[in-house]
Amino acid sequence: MKKQKIQQKIKPIMLAISTVAILASGTLPFTVSVISPAQAASSKLGDLGKFRIIAQDTSALIEKGDLAAAKTRIKDLELSWDEAEAGLKPRAAADWHVIDKSIDKALAALRASNPNPASCKQSIRDLLNEFDKANAATAK
């Protein structure tokens, strides 16, 4: 339990340090994506738009062949998803688990010791599809 409390206290500090490092470098390690209103529609889990944008950014980096940057960007998804778990999961646990497993697959593909670009592309496509399915289920 102590470890978890320490990690919770350290996360904002690490985020601040990362932000300062990124700003000091003068370049952003990701792209900014625009999503359509349909993609931003709220699911049973709530608004998944911010998570989908990170997945889209990751996809764009994979498409460019920059797997190292994609690995860094998907870490942002992992952190924000985990941070939002307590608010999302109770709304629709089954949907949350489906997306969580898809995020885990994309993370595993990008974190492999020798990442396969085709596997990375497929896993991020699958993840984007899961976000779209979650949104489409609510739109019906």
Rank of each mutant, 00 (worst) to 15 (best):
M1K: 03
M1D: 05
M1L: 13
M1E: 12
K3F: 15
K3D: 14
Q4H: 10
K5V: 10
I6E: 12
Q7I: 12
K9W: 11
K9G: 15
I10T: 09
K11M: 13
K11C: 05
M14Y: 07
L15W: 05
A16T: 07
A16V: 02
V20W: 02
V20F: 06
V20Y: 06
V20K: 00
A21T: 12
A21R: 09
A21E: 12
I22Y: 07
I22V: 10
A24Y: 07
A24P: 11
G26C: 04
T27M: 12
T27E: 11
P29S: 12
P29W: 00
V32A: 01
S33H: 12
S33V: 06
V34N: 09
S36A: 10
S36E: 14
P37F: 05
A38R: 03
A38T: 03
S42G: 00
S42V: 02
K44V: 02
G46A: 02
G46K: 03
D47H: 07
L48Y: 07
F51C: 00
R52M: 01
R52D: 09
A55L: 11
Q56G: 09
Q56F: 00
D57L: 10
D57H: 05
T58A: 00
S59M: 04
S59W: 05
A60G: 01
I62Q: 00
I62N: 04
E63V: 11
G65W: 05
L67P: 09
L67F: 09
A69Y: 01
A69D: 11
T72Y: 06
R73Y: 02
I74T: 05
I74E: 03
L77D: 02
L77M: 01
L79W: 01
S80M: 04
D82L: 02
D82T: 03
A84H: 04
E85G: 09
A86N: 08
G87F: 03
L88C: 08
A94S: 04
A94C: 03
W96Q: 03
H97M: 14
H97S: 05
V98N: 12
I99T: 06
I99L: 14
D100N: 07
S102Q: 13
K105I: 10
K105R: 15
A106C: 14
A106D: 04
A108M: 15
A109G: 13
L110W: 07
R111H: 03
R111T: 13
A112I: 15
S113M: 15
S113H: 15
N114H: 10
N114E: 13
N116F: 13
N116W: 15
N116M: 13
A118Q: 14
Q122W: 11
S123G: 01
R125E: 06
D126P: 04
D126H: 11
D126V: 09
L127D: 08
L128T: 11
E130Q: 08
E130K: 04
F131Q: 06
D132V: 00
D132Y: 11
K133M: 10
A134K: 09
N135A: 08
A136W: 08
A136T: 11
A137G: 12
A137V: 13
T138S: 14
